[in-house]
Design a protein around this nucleic acid. Sequence first.
RNA 1: CGGAGUUCU
Length: 252
Amino acid sequence: VVSWTSIVTAYTLFGYMAQAKSLFDRMPHKDLVSWTTMLHAYAQHGYVQEARALFDQIPCKDVFLWTAMLQAYVQNGCLDEGRSLFEKIPKRNAVSWTTMVQGYVQHGNLQEARKLFDECRERDIVSWNAMIAAYTQVSNLEEARELFNQAPRKDPVTWNTMIRAYAQHDHLEESRQMFYDMPGMDVTSCAAMILAYSVHGYLDLAWELFSTMPVQDSVSWNVIIQAYTQNGLGRIALRLVHEMSEQGLYRD
RNA sequence: CGGAGUUCU
């Protein structure tokens, strides 16, 4: 069952829905993981009815499956259906709540999102990150900062969200401050900071950070290349592209 | 590390 499901997953990741479905249908035994995988694939490709039909066939549902169905609804704009499903989930956890909250965020209902977030007692770090990001997306940096300060824990995504938000709103100093307040050196936040420097024209600082970060991932390579390109230094960028491919990394 | 939610390329 495990290896069959892995292959189904592989098909869905490459967008081969027909193959995935056909293999899924021929699976001798299906368990909750394979059901959820298929349901999630339907959702990703916008097949809400198919997802629901599948969902209704499944006898014993766990919270993963419920939440996948919830995600199928909210991702495809069916917020009301999503909400009533949400109310029916037997054991809602932080993921279910955050999925619902995020559904409201993505459809512009920040009020309802925040209301739900405040009611929720199953909040984990991802819930906080989602709510913080929601405020940065509507340029409400004050509220984002407020939540950031209240957040019981912070991970690289938390920091990264704030660093980028400040950079995008021309608050380079705040970005810098965040970056240096952050414990440890996360590659994603380095990339965020490199991008911040470069869009403000500080190529030297961007390069300095890039070359001193512990390990350069493909995101930071892409960002530094973009930095040189956009600042009119195409030949340096080309050299970096070459170096990058020598490291076995790919450009986006 | 066979399945669900958050930031970025």
